[in-house]
Design a protein around this nucleic acid. Structure first.
Lengths: 265, 265
DNA sequence: AAATGTAACATGTTTTATGTGATAATTGTG
DNA sequence: CACAATTATCACATAAAACATGTTACATTT
C-alpha cells in the first residue's frame, strides 16, 4: 500500500454523519490519516474536517493530533459501542431474525449486552406477553415503554464501553431469575472455544447461561478472525448456534469435524 | 367558571413546545378542551392544533377525541414523568443545590426515582470519586459515561410511568448495598406522614432508606397540597428535611409544633 | 349536509453545516 | 533565538437541511 488515500472526489453526496463514519473507517484502516487528505478526499474544507475530528475525538473514536488523527489504543477503539453498532449490520440483523423466530408469546428471554443480540430486541417488539431480562442499557432503551413487553434489568455497575451493567449486583439478580432462552454473542471463536476481552462480561455471560433453560449463540463471521483474552464457554454448551453465512469454508469444516451443530444464515 | 377559555390572543410569541406545554396545562385545568378554542386561543390554525394533539397523545399526556382532547385517567396523567419534569423546576433545583452540598468526594449516595432528586444528579456531576446507586433510568442516563462517577443501577422491573426499576430484583440489590446518604422525595405530605401513589415505589423507598446511613428528604411546597394513597415514612425518620420556601406559614407552623426539624430553601 | 379529520403541498422560519479570511499557536530550521 | 512555514482556532457570512405552519382539497364521521 502506498499510504495515500484513494482520492476520487466522490460526487456522491454524503450526509455529515456518513462522512464522519467514513473518517472513522479510514482511521481504522490506515491507522493514521492526514487532515489535508481527508479534506481533499471528501471535497470539503479543512475547517469542516477539523470540526469532524473534534467531534469524533470527543466520542473517543480517535485521537486528534497536529495535521491529522490516529486510532488510539485500538482495543478501546474496536470495543466502542457506537462503533460496533454500525458494523456488519446486515449480517447481525439476519442472525437476529433467525434466532428471534425461536421465541413464542409468553416466553421469558435473557439477552446479553452485545450489539448482535441488540438486534434481537427489535424482533421481540412485536411479540406479546414476552418478558425480557437483560443487563444491557441499549436493550432497555430500545424496549422501554412498550406495553406488550415486560422488561427486567439486572442492574449492576455501569460500564460505558459495553453500555451494560456488571458485577455482583448483576450476577446476583440473574441468579434469582429463570428464563426459557438465553441469547448471547462472543468476541472471538478459536477452535470450539469462545472468548471475550473482559472478565466482568465473562462472569455475566456465565450467570446468564446458567439461569436459562436453553442457550442460543449468535456469531458474525468476523468473530472467527478476532482474538480475545478470556475463555467463557465452549460451542458445545449451546442448544443452538447461528453463524453468518460469510463464514469461510475451512472454518466451517473444522466445526463439523468437531461435531458442532450450527446453522448458517 | 364559564367553561370558555380566556381568549386573549396572546401577541406574546410562543415556541411550539411552549404552546404544547400550555395545552397540557389547559387540559389538566379544564379536564377537556375544544380544538377550535385552542386554535383561537393561541392564534394558530386548526391543523397546527391537530398536530400538537397528535404529538401529545403519543406521549400519553392526553387523549384526542372528536373536536378536542381530554385528560385521561388523571392519575396516570399527573404522574407522567415528562410532565412532572417540567413543573417547579426552579424550586427543585434550589432543593437539589442545598441537599447536594452535604455530599463529599468519596461518598456513596443513593438516589430515588423522583424528578426532584434527578436534579441532584447534576449537582454530583462535578464531585470526584463519588458512587451513585439508583433505581432511576433517568439518573442513569444523565450520569453515564462520566469517568469520575461510579454508577450502580439496582435493576428490577421497568416502570415507564416513573422511568425506574422496581420489584424483587430492585429491593434485593438495595439490601446488599450500603450507602452514606439516601436522597428521597415523596408525592404527598399529610401531617408528618409521607405518601406515594404506588406500592412498588413505596417498597423501593423503604429499602433505600434502610440501606443508607443517613436519609435526606426533598419536598417542593406543592407536596403539602397533594394526596396519595400509600404511607411510606414519617418525617421524623429523616436526618435532614429540605422544603421549598414557598411553603405557606400555617403548614410550616404545624411542622414546628410536631417538632420536625426542617430547612426552607 | 354539517362538522371534523387527514393528506399533500407551498411557504416561511429556525437550526445546522460549511466556507472564508483574519489571527493565534506550534513546529522546524538556520 | 528569530523567522518562516504549517497548522489551529475564532468569528462571521452564507448555504443547506429540518422544522413549523397554513392552505386547499378530499375523506370521514355524525
Amino acid at each position: 500500500m502506498d499510504g495515500s488515500l484513494n482520492d476520487r472526489h466522490d460526487g456522491a453526496k454524503m450526509t455529515p454523519s456518513e462522512r464522519r463514519r467514513e473518517i472513522v473507517n479510514l482511521v481504522m484502516a490506515e491507522r493514521t490519516v492526514q487532515l489535508d487528505q481527508l479534506a481533499d478526499h471528501f471535497g470539503v474544507s479543512r475547517m469542516t474536517i477539523h470540526r469532524d475530528l473534534d467531534l469524533l475525538e470527543e466520542r473517543g473514536l480517535l485521537r486528534k493530533g497536529r495535521g491529522g488523527a490516529t486510532a488510539e489504543g485500538s482495543l478501546l477503539f474496536e470495543s466502542n459501542f457506537h462503533y460496533r453498532m454500525q458494523t456488519e449490520v446486515a449480517e447481525k440483523r439476519a442472525l437476529a431474525k433467525a434466532a428471534g423466530a425461536l421465541v413464542e408469546p409468553g416466553n421469558v428471554v435473557m439477552i446479553d449486552d452485545s450489539t448482535t443480540t441488540l438486534m434481537l430486541a427489535e424482533e421481540f417488539e412485536s411479540i406479546d406477553f414476552i418478558t425480557i431480562i437483560t443487563n444491557s442499557l441499549a436493550v432497555c432503551e430500545r424496549l422501554r415503554g412498550r406495553p406488550n413487553i415486560h422488561l427486567i434489568l439486572t442492574g449492576g455497575t455501569y460500564n460505558d464501553t459495553f453500555q451494560g451493567f456488571y458485577g455482583l449486583v448483576c450476577e446476583q439478580s440473574l441468579a434469582k431469575l429463570r428464563a426459557d432462552w438465553a441469547f448471547l454473542s462472543a468476541s472471538s471463536v478459536i477452535g470450539t472455544s469462545l472468548y471475550h476481552q473482559d472478565q466482568e462480561v465473562v462472569r455475566m455471560k456465565r450467570a446468564l447461561m446458567s439461569s436459562a433453560e436453553r442457550s442460543v449463540l449468535l456469531l458474525t463471521h468476523s468473530k472467527f478472525k478476532a482474538r480475545a483474552l478470556n475463555h467463557f464457554a465452549d460451542l458445545s454448551e449451546f442448544d443452538r448456534v447461528f453463524i453468518g453465512a460469510q463464514l469461510d469454508a475451512p472454518a466451517a469444516q473444522r466445526l463439523q469435524q468437531a461435531n458442532i451443530a450450527f446453522e448458517l444464515v
